[in-house]
Amino acid sequence: MDELITLSEESVPLSYREDSLPGVQTLYGVKLYTKSVPDEKEIAQVYINNHSEIRVGWMIPVLSMISLEHEYSENVYFRKHVYEAMKFLNGKELHESMYVLVYSKRLLDAADVTSDGELSFSFVLYGIYPYCKYRSIVDVQHKIKVISKLVVAKSFNFDFSVGFFKFLVDDLLPAERNGYARFMFFYQIYELAMEMVFYKKVNELKIARSHLGIIRKKIEEYNSEGKLIAVLYAEMGMDKNDPSLAAVAKSIFEDLKEEVYYTSTNKSAMLYDIRNVLVHSYYRFSIEDSLSYLASYIEDEAFYVLNYIFSVQGMKEEMDNKYFYARS
């Protein structure tokens, strides 16, 4: 199906157009997202990590707003959020791939989120992308299944992104269907993060007034991209062997590497090896069947990389100043 839906009195059930909780009068907001394969049953309540007791809103497929054939059709809170969303969307023509984040501005503020743009990248793990100018046409696979409760993370405000990151959200996420290109673009986030981690580690040595010999020795530990990606994952606390990635690596490398490589190599080193194959030896290996998985995998990992950068104050400020500043 590839349909446009006009949200109106004719398409939205009456029970959704009536205020199911008239005693709850607060300001709501909406933000549009897109998913290439929409499902009217993918209705989720949205919580913010570190504030997991606060439900800030609902993620609602447009298809759910015109249907009574799902489990939330009688839920007064679901109906309330559709009612509030219709204040913004009544008469709008939206593609069936659209999802609507409907949130309480008061509760968003209580969860220490100052703008809905700070959640723009939060649903990438589920294949739900912020809608900027293109609906999603990517054959999204290998994503986490959308469940009834989604706990997401505050991060950089992509409403104010510029340069590479504006391209990333506006164009790459929803519209780039070439798996090789997606992998390479997302690897750029690794390149950026590794550079930032390098300077972070050097600054830590300077602050500690380390002996010159120690500084030289430590810098040698960071003198290659392979070493730096390991440092990055160590800083993130996420470096371990990943059997799912190892299985894909084995389908690529086959007997080129010994069995112990697939059972003991951490994902930072494995990703770096795969990146090198894609850059330097693509023609030698059978990679085409693995590209969809690899593109999705590194996209999800890039989400965690950005969250790590956001969590380190100095790195966060540098990123904000270069790539996420608000312009008048």
Rank of each mutant, 00 (worst) to 15 (best):
S244F: 07
T26L: 12
S296E: 09
K206L: 14
S8W: 04
G213W: 07
T26K: 15
L101V: 01
V162T: 15
L271R: 08
K218C: 11
V231T: 12
V162L: 12
A249D: 02
V124W: 12
V12P: 00
P174R: 04
E258H: 14
M59L: 15
Q45N: 08
D39R: 07
A85K: 00
L21M: 12
A208V: 07
Y272E: 08
Q45F: 11
N307H: 14
Y304C: 08
L232S: 10
I252P: 06
M86P: 00
S136Q: 08
Q45I: 07
A326I: 09
S36N: 13
A295V: 07
K240P: 05
K250M: 09
V248M: 02
G57A: 01
A234Y: 10
D171T: 11
I54A: 01
M184V: 12
T6N: 11
L32C: 00
D2F: 14
F164H: 07
S268P: 00
D170H: 10
R17S: 07
K143F: 13
G23P: 02
E74D: 15
V146H: 05
I219N: 10
L306C: 09
E53V: 03
V76Q: 13
M238Y: 12
Y28A: 01
M98D: 05
K200T: 06
V162F: 10
M319I: 03
V279P: 09
Y16V: 03
V76W: 08
V113G: 00
S122I: 00
C132Q: 13
M196L: 15
R216W: 09
V82D: 04
A193G: 05
K145G: 11
P38H: 05
T265M: 06
